[in-house]
Design a protein around this nucleic acid. Structure first.
Lengths: 220, 220
DNA sequence: ACCTGAACACCGTTCAAGT
DNA sequence: ACCTGAACACCGTTCAAGT
């Protein structure tokens, strides 16, 4: 079968989802496609560029449209949830998406939609850009946590064994230093990514709604 | 000079800041310390564990305390800004921190402080945990953007040359598909990480303030 | 235009041997 | 307990050679 950029990127995505990013090598992907490692370089300039392409491909698989008839609040929510689908559809590619992504067309599409929605809601350009940035930061951070790589906030009991610092020799946190964390260990252990995401999303939607009547420092 | 875990981690951080994560190798770090590559394994079980230690070390260098006399809003802001210092102090380690970090004592410290502050503000445990999660998501996402790795929202003109999708052959975005992005290119190009961060922080602080039962004024 | 094997300069880590 | 060189099974990428 013909070797194409598309097939190469597809094989990379598949491999990442199956075995993780660390398993990706040019040789490995080539083998997956039944060709020599060097053949890939006819379609992709480097491994780094290949991973960029993976990020772009994953992003472009997401549908960021929202119902034009809906309120801007609902549109914003719909767009944010679409973004979050990345973590469901490509959990192990998520870190790649989030950490490479420069400014591709696929990466700008969600921004375009969000800006249009906010424009329709009456926000000026400067405000709209700031708002989108805040949303993207929140969503990206949420993705990372959902996918299991972001800092803390996991079950304090399932502690690895950090070694560093003066954590108890058994890996437990010293109780006198972490009263809150330990007394809330049940809440911290509870996993409900949907509820967590919606909670923060509500906070942001509500807060930017409060910005509207007065409008912020100009914009248009 | 004696080889210690501490010196190894320090050398790794230094090397990452100087040449980026990709430059890190066991051999390289050993050379930096004037020892054989294998000597490192007497103090660190693997390269992956070394990078975990880098993340923990960077986190533990941040002072998350806030003035106990201040209002909870100011305390939350202070803690969030402290977190953001990571991006300033260790820009090239930031991605490592954000993408490795499991549950170390160093990583739990900011959570402990935040939970204590929210408890003092009158939030119950369940709410406090959700709020902290939303904040952490926002801060982590902001860090990534500040450090230059997160999706889009950069200057659309400085586009790489994605190739992917049907972006114009010159790498520019097709104007009919991206009217908002193109008309706001000046705003999107403007870089003011401080203002961006504070804007989103204000949104969140304001939104969680609205969550509190109205009876309580503010402060502790 | 596309494919390829050999080669180069690297990797992380195991192992057996040293002190 | 700590250090080490040699060795193994890998890497990404250049190059010259093929079709």
């Amino acid at each position: 079968m013909q070797l194409t950029r598309e097939r190469i990127v597809g094989a990379a995505i598949e491999l990442i989802e199956r075995e993780g990013v660390d398993a990706v090598s040019m040789r490995r992907i080539a083998a997956e496609l039944g060709s020599g490692a060097m053949s890939l370089y006819n379609h992709v300039p480097s491994k780094s560029a290949l991973l960029d392409a993976v990020a772009e491909q994953v992003m472009s698989g997401i549908d960021f449209r929202s119902e034009p008839g809906a309120s801007w609040q609902d549109q914003v929510r719909t767009q944010a949830r679409a973004f979050r689908q990345i973590a469901r559809a490509y959990p192990r590619c998520t870190l790649v998406v989030v950490s490479r992504h420069r400014t591709s067309a696929a990466g700008m599409r969600p921004i375009e939609h969000a800006l249009a929605t906010l424009h329709g809601a009456g926000f000026g350009g400067t405000s709209a850009v700031r708002i989108v940035r805040a949303f993207v930061a929140y969503i990206v951070g949420s993705l990372l946590r959902e996918v299991g790589v972001s800092p803390s906030l996991a079950d304090p009991q399932e502690q690895g064994g950090g070694e560093g610092e003066r954590a108890g020799a058994d890996g437990r946190l010293p109780p006198d230093e972490f009263p809150q964390v330990l007394s809330l260990s049940a809440e911290l252990a509870a996993k409900d990514p949907d509820a967590d995401f919606e909670f923060g999303l509500d906070l942001l939607v509500q807060a930017i709604g409060a910005l509207l009547p007065a409008g912020r420092p100009s914009g248009h």
